[in-house]
Design a protein around this nucleic acid. Structure first.
Lengths: 226, 226
DNA sequence: CAATCATTCAAGTATTCTGTTGAATAGTTG
DNA sequence: CAACTATTCAACAGAATACTTGAATGATTG
């Protein structure tokens, strides 16, 4: 292949890949990706969760859609967005991995806002699976109910953080409780563990969130309706 | 945690992750990443390979460095850039994976510029390793010599595409030859296979490139000097 | 079929990014 | 220590992006 033609090819090729990274090049859109990793959602719900205007949210979603990172379906009056692919989730996890390992600003932010989390004694996915098999543990999904319904760890009980305080009596003090939520930067599980400990339960936090569990091929369930 | 404080945390957190995707959000910078995946290089060499001005290349590299995706060392009069981490390579591979699977424009571009590649009969990494163990195959690294020196498949012979035509007699016609280069979009191996076939050799192309091989933990070697 | 509703579009402004050019910097070498 | 050289910086114009506001779409539902 002739040299200037080769250059043309490379430029166009890498620019195509850059469509993906450009689409991901916004904190707001990454937040949308993380939310969609929990399950599909309407524009309205995404706007509310990210505290942006609906028009703005819609535009961000369209950027993601033009990069083929998300897909839509109409459901009644609503349009539901979801991640296009497992690969998108994998990409986000790879990204999270680098940020966590290499951007000290991130560790710093977590420390400032979430404090020292050492004492939460995070349980790894593998360990939880073993303990689940031995029925030694109660797994608690503290995300909003819709996210639990869209998909959860097999055998987990839904108890959204907002309801936890009033439903404590449903939980046994005899067994260990492992709480999980969206991922390592989600505060729900932290808050749940703190509350449970104060009330005298043996509570721990799952290391990752639901997407981390699911992408490893560990057992999940959902209560999706037809 | 109070609600507006939570929002502040999320905004700052996701903006930090977006530093990474923003830095990757340029075709030129992705090309630099792919080149650096072959081994470290000076600014000058990168500028020449990507056919950009040195100043422009330098600025792109600094964007990557500010995102901690690449690192530098001074070597004599030159400054050598390299990927910061295996994780960076993994991220790029995850990205390549999505592009390949989901952006039809990419398949289209490859078809237009590289033609139908079916007949090249790509050999997978696993298969090559097996055949290597049985000594049934000659592995040919057709990248520029510097890249071979920075790291190559264990047991591969260096024969840069530019020299191949004049060094054909060094190769046996009795054994299969597997050529590889930078990755699936690198034309060197395609050209090598085409040339070898025309001259009556049994030639094949490795599916990925050197980085794909190395990240899988398959055996590599390098001739790096102290 | 008219009203309703979620979502998208269009236009506008403020901000950020890109590649160029020419000068500045900071190591290295004779 | 002066000359050299690879790299970086600074300043610029042009292009692209972010968020807002208000209007337009287009499917659904009574």
């Amino acid at each position: 292949m002739e040299s200037s033609r080769k250059r043309l090819f490379k430029n166009e090729l890498y620019d195509q890949f850059a469509r993906l990274t450009k689409a991901l090049g916004s904190g707001r859109r990454l937040e949308l990706i993380e939310l969609l990793a929990q399950g599909e959602r309407t524009v309205e719900a995404l706007a509310e969760e990210t505290e942006q205007s609906i028009a703005n949210t819609s535009q961000h979603l369209q950027v993601l859609r033009q990069a083929r990172l998300v897909e839509t379906t109409r459901a009644g009056n609503y349009i539901r967005y979801r991640l296009a692919d497992d690969r998108v989730l994998r990409l986000w996890l790879a990204l999270r991995d680098i940020g966590e390992a290499r951007l000290s600003e991130i560790t710093q932010l977590v420390r400032t806002f979430l404090g020292d989390r050492e004492h939460l004694q995070a349980v790894s996915g593998d360990e939880l699976r073993r303990r689940l098999a031995e029925r030694l543990v109660v797994v608690l999904d503290v995300r909003p109910a819709v996210e639990y319904e869209a998909g959860h760890i097999h055998g987990a009980r839904s108890m959204p953080i907002a309801e936890l305080r009033n439903r404590l009596k449903e939980l046994p003090k005899s067994r260990a409780i492992v709480a999980y939520c969206r991922g390592p930067y989600c505060v729900f599980a932290d808050e749940a563990v703190a509350l449970l400990r104060r009330k005298g339960y043996k509570a721990y936090r799952l290391e990752g969130g639901f997407p981390d569990w699911a992408i490893q091929g560990l057992p999940t369930a959902s209560s999706a309706r037809p």
